[in-house]
Amino acid sequence: MSKTVRIILNGHNRDVPAGATLASALLALGLTRFRTSVHGQPRAPLCGMGVCQECRLTVDGRMHVRACLLPCRDGMSVETDIP
């Protein structure tokens, strides 16, 4: 079995593959609403490479972190704007 790390998504523990980026790990968990648009639409990663800003999340209290550029780390706390 491959190694996992534990992140906290909107207050819930989730095990994700070690070495995964946060965007990929959350997509694999089935998350579809990474952020909510100005008009309330759900948005999820588009470009996967740090350009489009659609995967922005709050990570360890820091807002607007691009999930596609961030490797998952043990204990990382992640919040979407509407859980």
Binding site: A20, S24, A25, T32, P42, L46, C47, G48
Partner: peptide
Amino acid sequence: PGIVGAGGIQALIKGG
């Protein structure tokens, strides 16, 4: 959601 880039999907798959 579910619509991603052609390069984007490669980045995301390689990211796990």
